[in-house]
């Protein structure tokens, strides 16, 4: 019950943040994504590879506050050093809320972020208990640096980082693909509830960096390039780690 209340409170705060209405933008980006992944339930070896990543996003920028939501998806064929294959699927909903405090330098903003990330791992040489998976929803502080430059301030560079410190984790079990509670005869809700674990600071780790450079067109829309980095290390019944770098071309459409 305590965990449910904490989750409800955090979601409520998130919804409040998104309810603010200001300068709104829809963004879309795509580009190559490099990823490595390691799942200790199956192997101590690192699997890595590249594919395309896709992001759909939304931002709402106010005088003192900025909200951003990024929906990211990628499906990657990874290989270890011995050419064994792993198909990794990553999907996430990442939100940022930044505040411009008076005491901060003008180009900096502080805030918090929420990451809801799903990772599926299908090992091609494993005939049972595929896919291994984990899902976590977590919250933590975020910081942003943003600067405008050019004759008409038409260039914009921003760099933002997040560090997830608390939340919840739901992942594959010690041996099987579904968490243990799903193997018992009980309702799906009960099984899900029993499978949730705390995302604890320093035991679980999730952090990310997003660097972007944009050029503003005469109609107010922007085109740009960027690099999104993330690192995740989760410890539940087994440990899994992954990291990726997404290099992308992005279009921002003002609403």
């Amino acid at each position: 019950m305590k965990r449910l209340l904490i989750l409800a409170f955090l979601i409520f705060i998130q919804l409040l943040a998104l309810a603010q209405k200001n300068q709104r933008t829809i963004l879309i980006n795509t580009g190559p994504q490099n990823t490595w992944e390691r799942e200790f339930a199956y192997s101590p070896l690192v699997y890595k590879g590249s594919s395309m990543g896709f992001t759909l996003g939304y931002s709402s920028v106010g005088e003192k506050k900025t909200d951003e939501v990024y929906l990211h998806y990628s499906r990657l064929p990874l290989q270890n050093g011995f050419n064994a294959g792993l198909t990794a699927t990553h999907a996430s909903v990442m939100t940022y809320t930044f505040y411009k405090a008076d005491w901060l330098p003008e180009k900096f903003a502080l805030g918090w972020s929420n990451n809801n990330a799903l990772s599926l791992r299908n090992f091609e040489d494993s005939q049972n208990f595929n896919p291994r998976f984990d899902f976590h929803t977590s919250f933590g502080p975020a910081m942003r640096y943003q600067t405008f430059f050019g004759n008409q301030q038409q260039w914009r560079f921003s760099s933002q980082a997040n560090w997830q410190v608390i939340g919840f984790l739901f992942s594959a079990s010690y041996v099987t693909s579904p968490p243990d509670a799903f193997l018992h005869e009980q309702s799906t809700f009960n099984a899900f509830w029993q499978s949730i674990r705390f995302f604890q600071p320093f035991q679980q780790q999730d952090l990310g960096i997003l660097n972007q450079l944009f050029y503003q067109l005469s109609n107010g829309n922007e085109i740009g390039i960027g690099y999104r980095f993330h690192y995740t290390s989760l410890e539940n019944a087994q440990r899994s780690q992954r990291s990726g770098g997404h290099y992308f071309f992005q279009l921002n459409f003002k609403l």
Binding site: N34, T35, W36, R38, P44, L45, V46, K48, G81, F149, G150, W155, F157, S159, I209, N211, Q212, L213, I225, G226, Y227, F229, Y231, Q241, S243, G244, G245, Y247
Partner: peptide, 27 residues
Amino acid sequence: NLLIRFLLLTLAVIAVGCEEIIEPKAP
């Protein structure tokens, strides 16, 4: 100055392959 600034920022955006820097060593 503008050009240098632009190039540095572009470099910062695309040339930071952090995922490769932190890749674990083979066991």
